[in-house]
């Protein structure tokens, strides 16, 4: 975050330079065609001003070849831009398997960030450099948008539904986090910082600041709400087993098949009757958990998984 005048945004993620290539290519196209049109207009306006000596014989009112040419050229450029933009878009929509998870809850008008290793932060998110980070987002009220210009990524944050975003910071420093979707009175004040740290500094920071890991907090919740009474063990008939939950496909009572994910767990806690697994009775009461508590519970449930599909912990050198 520099306070000097700039014309180009800083490149602070592995993706930023890739997007800039596309962006500046489009700038090139735009400048070329704007100049072409302006030069043509000015040339004609001068050459064919009334009273000039230019020849005006055989005026043409149309030319099929010309029409197809100037339809085809933009079309080809558009298709290139479409293909290039789509390839990059797919890249930022598919987090790498080794990304570490962070959770962010947005509300009017603040960002509540939850580091996987327990540290909760307000309007700040500390991340290690050169590490892919996946941020799972949810809003408590209206729509917000998680926007880090230096990383060239943005994702709307919806109430009642998870979205996610990922990036791989490449440069230690402090970067703007903006809310980009208008969210009411103090929208412009809903700003935060992403602090990118060297890996060893980050590890030291966690050591210094770290509290109970999210999964441990989740386990405490799990015990406090007695989730295990129905979902624990192997023998209970009351509710489905939770170990390995994220690695199987479940069939619902109405025949729908789904792979349980964060969204399904959240719905099952807040409105348990909505989608009940086949073979079970809709007997679970609703629990009014906060979004942060749900994140913690899920972090715990993930440790119950038989074999994690994705690593939810820091790379070895970072873990305490």
């Amino acid at each position: 975050m520099e306070h000097e005048f700039q014309l180009f945004p800083e490149q602070a993620s592995s993706y930023a330079a890739k997007l800039d290539w596309l962006y500046y290519s489009l700038v090139g196209v735009a400048v070329f065609f704007t100049f072409l049109i302006c030069v043509l207009i000015l040339t004609f306006a001068i050459k064919y001003r009334r009273g000039s000596r230019a020849s005006r014989g055989n005026p043409s009112n149309g030319n099929l070849k010309l029409e197809f040419t100037w339809a085809l050229i933009p079309f080809v450029i558009m298709m290139i831009s479409f293909g290039w933009g789509t390839r990059l878009f797919m890249e930022i929509n598919r987090p790498p398997a080794d990304a570490i998870d962070m959770y962010v809850v947005a509300k009017q008008w603040m960002w509540k960030c939850q580091n996987q290793n327990g540290k909760g932060e307000i309007n700040e998110l500390h991340v290690p450099v050169e590490t892919p980070i996946r941020v799972t987002l949810i809003s408590e009220d209206v729509i917000h948008s998680f926007f880090v210009p230096a990383f060239r990524v943005k994702q709307d944050v919806l109430p009642g539904r998870y979205t996610s975003i990922w990036f791989r910071p490449t440069k230690p420093g402090t970067y703007h986090l903006f809310c980009a979707e208008y969210c009411g009175t103090s929208h412009a004040a809903m700003r935060g910082k992403i602090v990118v740290m060297e890996r060893h500094e980050y590890a030291a920071w966690l050591e210094r600041e770290g509290t109970t890991p999210a999964s441990v907090q989740g386990r405490l919740l799990f015990e406090r709400f007695k989730c295990g009474d129905c979902h624990g063990g192997d023998t209970s008939d009351d509710g489905p087993m939770l170990s390995g939950l994220f690695h199987r496909t479940e069939t619902m009572r109405d025949g729908e098949r789904l792979e349980p994910d964060l969204g399904y767990v959240r719905q099952s806690i807040l409105e348990p009757q909505a989608r009940v697994v086949a073979g079970y009775q809709p007997v679970m009461p609703a629990f009014q958990l906060s979004e942060e508590q749900i994140f913690q519970l899920v972090a715990y449930l993930e440790t119950l998984s038989a074999q994690p599909l994705k690593s939810n912990t820091l790379p070895e050198e970072l873990s305490r």
Partner: peptide, 17 residues
Amino acid sequence: LTGVFLATLAVDVQVHD
């Protein structure tokens, strides 16, 4: 022409809103 930037998915992610 700047509409083309916005129609291009990845560029729109940066400049949207």
